[in-house]
Amino acid sequence: MSPILYYGVPSGCSFGAIVALEWSGQPYRLARVNMPDDMQTDAFAAINPVRETPALATARGDVLAESIAILNHIGALPGTLEAGLSFAQGTREFDQLNRMLAFLNTTFFNSFASLWWLLEHESDDDTRRALTEYGRARVVRAHQELERMLGDKPWLLGQRRTLADAYFIGIARWTKYHSVVDRRDYPNLQRLFDQLEADPAVSFAHAIEQQRPTTSAGRFEGEIGIAESLAARRAA
C-alpha cells in the first residue's frame, strides 16, 4: 500500500508533511482529519491514540505519529536523499537538519501555544491580556532566532531546500491567525516565506486543505476517508 498521511484542518502543522511528500516524488495518499471533531472518534483513536495530527500509515503497515518522526521517515524514502531533502544519519548535515527540525518543533511551534489556547477557549480580559503578551514575546523571540539562523542563505540549511523548509512553511503561516508580529520586520524569513509560497507543492497543499481543484506536482494518489483507510489496512 502507498503511505497514507492523516492531515489536520484547518491549518494543521501536517501541512509540512504534505509538502515533503510532494517533494519526495514518492506515491502517497491523504486522509482528511477535521479538527477537533474527527480526532475524538474511535476510528481516529485506532490510528493515533493520542488523538493528534499528523499521523502516517507507512507502506509497510506501521503507523507513525509526531511531525519529526514522520518527516524523518519521508527523508529516508528512496530518492529523497538523492534530492537533497534529507541526509544520511550520522553525517554532519543530518545533525544540522535534525537540530533545525527540533527548533521548529519546539521553540517555533510552541511559541504560538498560548495564542492558540486563547483562540479556542473563552477567557476573561485579564487572562486574555496576559496570555497575549506572553505569546507575543515568545513568537517575537522565535522569529528573531530563526531570522538569525537563516541569515542570507536561500534555504534554512543552505543552498538546497530540505524537510526543514517544508515544516517551516506550515507553521509560519499561523501569523495570519495571530497578529503579534509583522514578518516584514524579519526580511530573511519574509524572503523564505515568499519563496515557499510560490512553490507548486505548497500551492498544492493549500488547495488540498481548502478543497479546491488542484494538480499534484508529485505522485499523489488521491484522498481516502478515515474509516475507509482502516478497512484498507485491515484488508492488506
Rank of each mutant, 00 (worst) to 15 (best):
P200M: 06
D194N: 09
I169M: 10
L196F: 11
K176P: 00
V180N: 05
Y134K: 15
D152Y: 01
L118F: 02
Y186C: 06
F112T: 03
F168L: 04
R136L: 14
L192D: 02
R160C: 06
A205C: 07
A201F: 03
D124R: 07
Q159V: 08
A137M: 09
T162M: 08
S114H: 05
D126G: 06
D125E: 14
R184N: 15
F193T: 15
N110Y: 07
D194F: 05
G158T: 03
D165F: 02
W155D: 04
N110T: 11
M149W: 04
L115K: 00
F193R: 07
N110D: 13
E120V: 07
R183F: 14
L156F: 04
K153Y: 03
K153A: 13
L163G: 00
S123L: 11
Y167M: 00
M149Q: 10
L156K: 00
A137F: 10
S203A: 15
L189Q: 01
S179M: 09
A142W: 01
S179N: 15
L118C: 06
A142H: 04
A137R: 12
A142F: 05
R129L: 14
R183H: 10
W155C: 04
R173A: 07
N110L: 13
L118I: 08
P187E: 13
K176M: 11
T132A: 13
F112V: 07
W174C: 02
R128D: 11
A130E: 13
S114C: 12
Y167K: 00
A137L: 10
R160F: 03
Q190T: 11
G158A: 03
P154E: 11
L150G: 02
G151A: 09
G158P: 00
D199T: 02
R136N: 11
D199N: 05
Y177Q: 15
V139F: 04
E197R: 12
E120M: 09
A172C: 14
D199F: 04
